[in-house]
Amino acid sequence: MARVVVDVMLKSEILDPQGKAVERAAQRLGYSTIASVRQGKRFELEIDGPVDDAALARIRELAQSLLANTVIEDFTVRVEDN
């Protein structure tokens, strides 16, 4: 069964308070070279049948309507090798 991964990230111009909190914690722990942290979401979709262009188009449709809110978020879709 093929796996398709959808990554969703807040757009770069949108403030990410959760990422900022993680960033501050990392610096407090001494990871001084970590300059910035942004937090996102990863969805792993197990797909029945072939992952062809039509299947990927359907997944992009789902990402656009449900998995991401494109007002504030960007997403990427990729097929993961087994």
Partner: peptide, 11 residues
Amino acid sequence: LPGALTRNDHL
């Protein structure tokens, strides 16, 4: 409605 509601800036 336009726009979105996101996490409070101070968390």
